[in-house]
Simulated assay, not measured.
Amino acid sequence: MRGESAVRLRPPRNTPDERAVAWWRTQWLLVTAVPVVVLAVLGGLLEPARTWLLAGAGALAAVGLGCAAFFPRWWFRVHRWEVTDEAVYVRTGFFRQEWRIAPMSRIQTVDTVRGPLEQAFRLATVTVTTASAKGAVTLTGLDHRLAADLAERLTLITRDTPGDAT
């Protein structure tokens, strides 16, 4: 770099809300519970395949419980986000880290989404849409009030930022 100082990308400062761990854990348990119940009911009804169906239900339940115990806490440790006056920064992943940076001049829309489960945990997801072929930048597991404030802040910053948002 001739005459320029190297700019180092630092990790974004913010983590999801602590309640996101319980939200992610509940998602795992619900996704696992449906096939476990189906296999268990079929195992109870179909005598010839009972052993295999109940064994499958037990194995799936064990895997689901293990994933629900491990992954949400891990995701909480690796998900980071930050909003500055210049850009929105998101980092996800551990083995394969992904950094997403959306400059304010490129932001087209800001959406706040609260699914039923997120509402139960008082959480929200902020989706920042840009002209990028990679797709929107999402900030998940945010406190619902923080998400609303963030969407308002982003709207004000992008309104006052020169650029074409294309």
Rank of each mutant, 00 (worst) to 15 (best):
F76Y: 15
G135H: 02
L154E: 07
V126N: 02
F71M: 09
G66F: 02
C67H: 08
T130G: 03
D17I: 05
W74R: 10
T125D: 08
I157S: 03
V63K: 02
Q27Y: 02
W24H: 11
W52N: 11
V90C: 07
A136D: 15
P12R: 00
R106V: 09
T26R: 14
R96F: 14
F95A: 10
P35I: 02
W24Q: 13
L146W: 09
T125V: 07
T15H: 15
S105F: 07
P11M: 14
E86L: 15
V38P: 05
L65D: 08
P35L: 01
E47S: 12
R73E: 11
L54P: 06
L123Y: 11
P162K: 12
V63F: 12
F76N: 09
R145Y: 11
A59D: 02
L30W: 07
T112E: 15
P72Q: 08
W28K: 05
V36L: 09
R145A: 13
L29P: 06
V83A: 12
P116D: 04
R91M: 15
A87F: 10
F70K: 02
T92Y: 07
Q108V: 03
R91P: 06
A59M: 12
G163M: 07
T155E: 14
A133C: 11
L154V: 03
W24P: 05
L154Y: 04
L65T: 10
F95N: 10
G163Q: 12
G3N: 14
P35V: 01
V34P: 13
R80E: 01
L117Y: 07
T140D: 12
W74P: 03
E18A: 15
L60Q: 12
A120P: 03
T84D: 03
L9A: 06
L142G: 00
L123T: 05
Y89G: 03
L139Q: 00
A20G: 00
R8I: 13
Q119D: 11
V113K: 10
M104D: 05
G163R: 05
A57P: 03
D111V: 06
V110T: 09
T26I: 13
P103F: 10
T130F: 06
A165T: 06
R96E: 14
G135C: 01
W99G: 04
T158H: 02
D164P: 07
T125P: 08
G43T: 00
R122K: 15
P162I: 13
T127A: 10
P116A: 03
T138R: 00
T51P: 05
